[in-house]
């Protein structure tokens, strides 16, 4: 049995269907990326999972118990970090965490020890006596994450935690999340920075206009997004003067389109994107991409196209997202 099971979840606000028939599950020790554009229904779903809203229909089970019917039993198991992580500006980091530890019912030395261990884990110990108003955004976000960990929840729900953070703070957050997953916590994280999610998520759920379009391991969704036929993308750059660039690019485009396996060629400023695709159902060898690329490069060189850069690009979560969401929900 999964730690979290979401079954046919719907939330309507009058005529607006914010979430419709969403189902997915999440196991202990895994990170699920919840992906979708703004207004897709991510935050609404997360608020329902965090017991802050009730669904119009459907069920959410945490350790087999209904989150909707018994929020009091579920709250101790959930750590929720909303997209605006509010802090009390006139409290120090220690006072802030200590207050929430008290609110979670922790007492005496056990409470102090827990606050210390959370500050240690999130790297906040050197800042314990600093007012939260004096912290950087990245540090405030750590304080917020620390707050969600105080009661040692099994499920972490993080709504856009990386939003507005600098690259270094993002990398640090990623490491913290990996460490939490390694401890056996299930993490549901939403973001619209897809490259970031693809690096840390074991699986993802893609949602648009309230409907779940795809769910499963990232590799599986990537594979599915490639379609039935194996494909890859090649990016190449030309080295020439500005005056002759367009002419060279046109020549290259014509030449490329005449080659076998080339399905499309897109000219984008000084880059040419070439999509190579085997026929559906054909028996692809393990090195078909390498073979096709070698042949393509040879043709370009033979025809004196001034290629200065030639590289294949692996499909990522962004491609999968674009592929899955494109025109599916009108």
């Amino acid at each position: 049995m999964s730690l979290l099971e979401v079954r046919h979840l719907s939330r309507f606000y009058g005529a607006l269907r914010a979430v419709e028939d969403v189902s997915f599950s999440l196991d202990e020790g895994t990170i699920l990326g919840f992906i979708g554009p703004n207004g897709a229904g991510k935050s609404t779903t997360m608020r329902i999972l965090a017991t802050l809203d009730v669904p119009t229909a459907g069920e959410v089970l945490l350790e087999g118990k209904s989150v909707v019917e018994r929020p009091d039993l579920s709250r101790p198991l959930i750590g929720y970090m909303p997209d605006r992580y509010g802090t009390y500006d006139d409290m120090t980091v220690f006072e802030f965490l200590d207050f929430f530890a008290r609110a979670y019912g922790q007492k005496g030395k056990a409470r102090i020890d827990r606050v210390d261990s959370v500050m240690d884990f999130t790297g906040l110990m050197p800042l314990k006596d600093k007012l939260t108003s004096e912290l950087s955004k990245g540090m405030k976000q750590r304080v917020a994450l620390g707050r969600t960990l105080l009661h040692d929840p099994k499920l972490l729900i993080l709504d856009e935690p990386a939003d507005g953070l600098d690259p270094r703070a993002r990398i640090e957050l990623r490491e913290l999340l990996r460490a939490l997953a390694a401890q056996g916590k299930a993490v549901l994280i939403s973001s619209h920075i897809l490259t970031e999610l693809s690096e840390i998520c074991d699986s993802c759920a893609i949602i648009e206009q309230g409907k779940l379009l795809a769910t499963g391991p990232v590799s599986e969704i990537l594979h599915r997004s490639q379609g039935a036929a194996p494909s890859t993308e090649v990016q190449l750059k030309l080295f020439t003067t500005a005056e002759t660039l367009e002419d060279a690019a046109r020549r290259a485009e014509r030449l490329l389109l005449e080659q076998p396996l080339v399905k499309s060629v897109v000219l984008a400023q000084d880059v040419i994107r070439v999509r190579l695709e085997l026929d559906a159902g054909s028996n692809a060898s393990a090195v078909w991409v390498d073979e096709a690329c070698a042949r393509l490069l040879a043709v370009l060189v033979r025809e004196a196209i001034p290629v200065c850069s030639f590289q294949t690009r692996q499909l990522d979560l962004e491609d999968a997202f674009l592929h899955v969401t494109k025109g599916r929900v009108a």
Binding site: L52, Y80, P82, A103, Y104, G105
Partner: peptide, 13 residues
Amino acid sequence: EDETWVLLSLTGL
């Protein structure tokens, strides 16, 4: 205003 109310509600108080 500061949305700390949500955090308080989640504590089970």
